[in-house]
Design a protein around this nucleic acid. Sequence first.
DNA 1: TATTGTTATACTCTATAACTATA
DNA 2: TATAGTTATAGAGTATAACAATA
Lengths: 157, 157
Amino acid sequence: MGRSADHRSSKKTVQLDVRLREFVGYTLRRTSSIIQADLAQTLKPFDLRMLTFSALSLIINNPGLRQSQLADAMDVEHPNMVSLIDDLEARNLITRERSTSDRRAYAVCGTEAGKRLYEAAHKAVADHENRLLAGLNDDQRQQILGAMEMIQTAYKI
Amino acid sequence: MGRSADHRSSKKTVQLDVRLREFVGYTLRRTSSIIQADLAQTLKPFDLRMLTFSALSLIINNPGLRQSQLADAMDVEHPNMVSLIDDLEARNLITRERSTSDRRAYAVCGTEAGKRLYEAAHKAVADHENRLLAGLNDDQRQQILGAMEMIQTAYKI
DNA sequence: TATTGTTATACTCTATAACTATA
DNA sequence: TATAGTTATAGAGTATAACAATA
């Protein structure tokens, strides 16, 4: 499941080493891990993990994608995509159909049930974000997203 | 080892679903994962992982800590701290000595070799950060760190 | 009783190699 | 020969339960 969900627990936290906190890489990792744990709790009622939610979102919003395209978009190795898709298909949230033009490939689409679950989960995640970022205005949120985008593209060059 | 290191590879990336990218949680996770992979490469020559580097940094800069305090500071469960400490101790980078006041506890300290390795690794990580964040000025970096701090403290309340 | 450190264990995420069936 | 999907497998990272020694 990953990290413990209860980050609000009032354990007597040790506040020490300042040097590590200067690193954006370190701070980003810790923050991301905290958010991830909370997000997992948010998605639990829908029986979705972050990976299955991401896959569902991509499939619903881009119907007909191949698994390899999904894997690329999610930055997941192809073999690891299989069980994700298997899970969603077994629950009748998506369909896997052989492509007519290339019989090696599958075209993946969301079902009506998948779309309903996705919309509900999406709303829960959006609410979660708003709670989480209540202290930041739209401008600040955009700055964060912009900075992350900049770092990501810096890596792709 | 985690994620593939070569994020600069020019795979034909699929740019699709815009909805996911609106989520700070999602974007943060992806960015953090990319940075982490690169950081792992940076630490490899020192035979350190992000977790062992973090532990070493905390130990060197706060000598005499107990393992439980380290685990708290690193947000790691106590059982998972053991192998980290074992690794560093086996390489003579740190010492584990029974506390005189509480014979259940260990006081952990860095050795001279540990300090040398840490300083070299710290410099490499700092250089890595500067390369990574070359597109951001000091003000923008501080804003990111501030926003992360705000999110983290929001969770602790 | 509670806490420090430990062992054992399990689950998720990720990476690689090798297979199959198509192209 | 190359590609799409699959299987099998291995290694990090992280979580919980239960134990011995000490408080």
